[in-house]
Simulated scan of single mutants.
Amino acid sequence: MVKKLVVASNNYNKIREIKQILAQYPLEILSMGEIGVNIDIDENGTTFLENAYKKAKTVYDFLGRKFMVLADDSGLIVKGLNGEPGVHSARFAGEHGNDKKNNEKLLKLLENKNRESRNARFLCTMVLILGVDEVLEVQGEIEGIICEEERGNNRFGYDPLFYVPEYNMTFGEMSAELKNSISHRARALKKLKIEMGKYIEKKV
């Protein structure tokens, strides 16, 4: 029997990636829009986990606790900025989702900073609500360095500034396939896949 899993997002790329990684399970994966959820969720938590749980729980309750709900919260953590932008990554410059202004602010704050201060990591926390008292939590991350200028054609978020030494490229220079196979979200999803496998085995 195919079960519905609702992702607390309308981000097409995110949902496509989730579908690919969880393809082996009998799940129909839907966005909020596809299942008729049109609500604003104030992401005012102080941690990625708080925000992810709030999104998942809000949608889970809105749907009458009838479907599994998955939510994530992700962000960039920069050593020389005491962990900023952190949970404020999407609205670092004040306007939600303005990638250009966010990147400009990040570069400005890191001007004349040394190499160690530019060390950074992308972190993704995921919460999957399976039932009233059944919740899975996983986290994935990848380490990198903030460049002094944008590099690459992929202009999404901080990707043009996030350099991954092992690949000698920024996220902005990588193909979508490569980035999606090594990203913080991909790593969180792979952990989620393992935890889901354990959950399903217990239910059989």
Rank of each mutant, 00 (worst) to 15 (best):
K3H: 08
L5H: 04
L5Q: 01
V6I: 14
V6G: 00
V7H: 00
V7D: 02
A8C: 09
S9D: 10
S9Y: 07
N11L: 07
Y12T: 14
N13G: 05
K14D: 11
I15P: 00
I18V: 10
Q20P: 05
I21H: 01
A23F: 15
E28F: 14
I29H: 04
I29A: 07
S31F: 09
E34F: 02
G36M: 07
N38W: 13
N38E: 14
D40G: 13
I41V: 14
N44A: 13
T47Y: 00
L49I: 09
L49Q: 05
L49T: 10
A52W: 04
Y53S: 04
K55Y: 06
A56L: 03
T58C: 09
V59L: 11
D61Q: 12
D61T: 11
D61F: 07
D61Y: 08
F62P: 05
L63S: 03
G64D: 07
M68Q: 06
V69T: 03
D72P: 01
D73F: 00
D73Y: 01
S74Q: 08
G75M: 03
V78M: 10
G80L: 05
L81R: 09
L81I: 12
N82I: 08
N82W: 09
E84K: 14
G86I: 10
H88I: 06
G94M: 10
H96S: 12
G97P: 04
N98G: 14
N98S: 15
K100M: 08
E104S: 13
L107Y: 08
K108C: 09
L110Q: 12
K113F: 12
E116A: 07
A120I: 00
R121D: 10
C124W: 00
T125G: 01
M126V: 03
G131N: 09
G131V: 00
V135F: 04
L136Q: 05
E137S: 12
E141I: 08
I142V: 13
C147I: 08
C147D: 10
E148I: 07
R155H: 15
F156L: 13
D159A: 02
P160Q: 02
Y163E: 02
V164Q: 04
E166N: 10
Y167Q: 04
M169G: 03
T170C: 12
T170K: 02
F171C: 06
G172A: 04
M174E: 00
S175G: 09
A176P: 14
E177D: 13
E177Y: 06
S181H: 06
S183M: 06
H184I: 06
H184V: 06
R185Q: 06
A188S: 05
A188L: 02
L189M: 12
L189V: 10
L189Y: 04
K191W: 01
K193D: 15
E195H: 07
G197Q: 11
G197K: 11
K198A: 06
Y199V: 05
E201Q: 09
K202M: 08
K203W: 07
